[in-house]
Design a protein around this nucleic acid. Structure first.
Lengths: 211, 211
DNA sequence: ACCTGAACACCGTTCAAGT
DNA sequence: ACCTGAACACCGTTCAAGT
């Protein structure tokens, strides 16, 4: 070989394509589990099959995660980052920020229902996975901004919770298929339903006999 | 024995207290599973342990339910009946029917979070368990009534969905502990939070810069 | 009819080793 | 350091019997 600069062997590459799980098994496991969530409910996602699909023994994940829940928490944390990003992008691209953010929130849930369910479901406790608490608070901050909810303005707090409840509940009702065909609107697509619901909430939700 | 009216042996009693699971095993299993849901997530509720607590072999439930999901569906159906009942009672006892029903809905979720999660979660598909679809539609009817949502008045549909989304989302955020202490309101109790959120929704949820 | 024990193919997790 | 195979105590479900 002509003019080698050093006599040392080539340094180990960070990632060789044929040894996907050498030194980067943690990332590989998160990616595999995330992909499996596209088709399988988090409840039925087995650690052993994640390992199998990643090409390692059923026991290898324990080098990187304390248990199954910790792997799921890592997946959920990435989900929160993705949700926050799509909310931020929608906000800056629209003249109606609240509506754009709400649509992005619900569309994220519809597009990745099992990931959404994992992120917000009861399986991963906020107190046991503090990384998730921070990611959630950031998502909330995106929602709070167009409502003018500064920390100083505490009177807006119920409105903030109402706005979050509205999009969160609509997302859940849609991905859990809890709206019958009559409520969903047979001919309309989901986009216009979301818009109509957000518009109706903007006008106020009151009893027929209230002023 | 004096003056027995018949010479036949006494007819078998419907329920003897010492043979709880003779002829009424189905009801016993539903009751046991419902009780276990007070402390354990539906996800972790094993059919074998339900049978164990009911005092039968791990296989006996298959005489009454096709599989684990069918037992859970029966539990959820009873849950919907209970939810509908508490909503109906709240409505007739209050001068603010919408608010009373919404509070009942959220309070039910807080009081029995794992049952609520089972009833509305993705595990039991609406199409695979039509008994649940009917029970859900009835619950919705309670919510629709104070909003004046007749089937003829289709313009109210988005408002109905918004109202249901609001209470459903608030219920989920509360039972999944997704509201940080700042949003939940540290000193206030849950009752007043619910009331404040419903009031805020009644005034309308809009961006700060919208008219 | 209703219930049982044995069996099958899975789990999550732990442990003693291997390189 | 990172990975492995064997082992343990569980699952849901099926099957051949027992009364």
């Amino acid at each position: 070989m002509w003019s080698m600069s050093t006599s040392k062997k080539a340094p180990p590459r960070r990632k060789r394509p044929d040894s996907y799980h050498h030194g980067d098994l943690r990332r590989a496991l998160v990616a595999t589990a995330t992909q499996m969530l596209e088709n399988e409910e988090a409840e039925n996602l087995s650690l052993r099959e994640v390992a199998r699909r990643a090409g390692v023994s059923h026991n290898a994940p324990y080098r990187h995660f304390a248990d199954r829940d910790s792997l799921l928490a890592a997946v959920a944390a990435e989900g929160f980052r993705a949700l926050g990003q799509t909310m931020a992008e929608s906000r800056s691209a629209s003249a109606q920020p609240l509506r754009a953010i709400g649509e992005a929130y619900v569309q994220f849930a519809i597009g990745r229902p099992r990931l959404f369910g994992l992120m917000f479901g009861p399986g991963l406790e906020r107190s046991r996975h503090p990384e998730l608490a921070a990611a959630m608070d950031e998502v909330f901050a995106h929602l709070a901004q167009p409502l003018g909810g500064n920390s100083a303005d505490d009177g807006a707090r119920p409105t903030l919770v109402a706005a979050w409840s509205l999009v969160h509940g609509l997302a859940h009702l849609l991905i859990d298929h809890r709206l019958g065909p009559r409520l969903r609107g047979s001919t309309q697509d989901v986009n216009s339903l979301i818009g109509d619901v957000l518009d109706a909430a903007g006008r106020g939700i009151q009893s027929a006999d209230e002023p």
